[in-house]
Amino acid sequence: MELLFKLFSMAVFASTLRIATPLILASLGGCMSERSGVINIGLEGMMLMGAFTAVVGSFYLGPWPGLILGILAGGMMGLLHAFMSVTLGANQVISSTAINIMAVGLPNILIPVIWPGHYGISPTVGVIKDINIPFISSIPVIGKVLGHQNPIVYVALILVPVISYLLFKTRIGLRIRSVGEHPRAADTLGINVYKMRYIAVTMSGLLAGLGGAFLSICYQSQFSSVMTAGRGFIGLAAMIFGRWTPKGAMLACLLFGFADAFQAGAQSAGVPIPPEILLAFPYVLTLVALVGLLGKTAVSPAANGKPYLKG
């Protein structure tokens, strides 16, 4: 009983939010890209590049410039993916897989060049510190969850309605969705399909880069090439689970975040399950959650994954 109480404490909910933040950012990136008709399984690599660059930036310039650089690095990866899959019409899965492979190798090469003597893991760098929002933290229950958090956590939570608004209420959102559904129709109406996809995929990279930067200079304070641990893919699964909508994806991310926070809580509470098995829990949950979608019609954008070649 006492154990259960511990596991459902406000601290667990607060850490749910922290764990969910990079997932939310990745899944928002997934929504942007796939709504425009470009599959992006490179989110993982984009996060990793964002995480690495943020650490480098933080090392030389401080955490906030590091954050900006991390976001931009993700964006660059997005641009690369867009160039490959939109301009050249390459297989989008192959193109984004290449990004994932590169993002594992490149930082490992650069780490010993930047920090001689370091291999695989960067030194610790300055982080973006949590902030206290007095107004919120004074509210009884919510205050404990939301009152004292990292600024990027708030940014991610705000980005959910922002991206949702962008995609479903604005002109550019309508156009992005139209090229994801029926690029030829959009083309006949004078919409530049390539431009829309470039915008969407680059934004996807920027969001993933932010997610990565959060991991390396907020959630932790250093970089290692295994730090994303499949979060980009979980974000992608969350996007599918949320039916390609930012709000649905966020809910799914919170669910995964909770699962992770729960297992961490269980570990520290001394539940007699080996830690490695508990660590596998979020991945199992992702699979189970996707299976749970059974019978509901797929709502994937109709042109998702198909290169558009002008006739």
Binding site: I94, V104, G105, Y119
Partner: peptide, 25 residues
């Protein structure tokens, strides 16, 4: 030479990129 052996994964990634492009090109 102290070149990180992960240089190979960069070669791998570039080869994958090129093979991905090779069909349309």
């Amino acid at each position: 030479y102290g070149v990180n052996k992960d240089m190979v994964s960069v070669i791998t990634a570039i080869i994958v990129l090129f093979m991905g492009m090779s069909a349309p090109i």
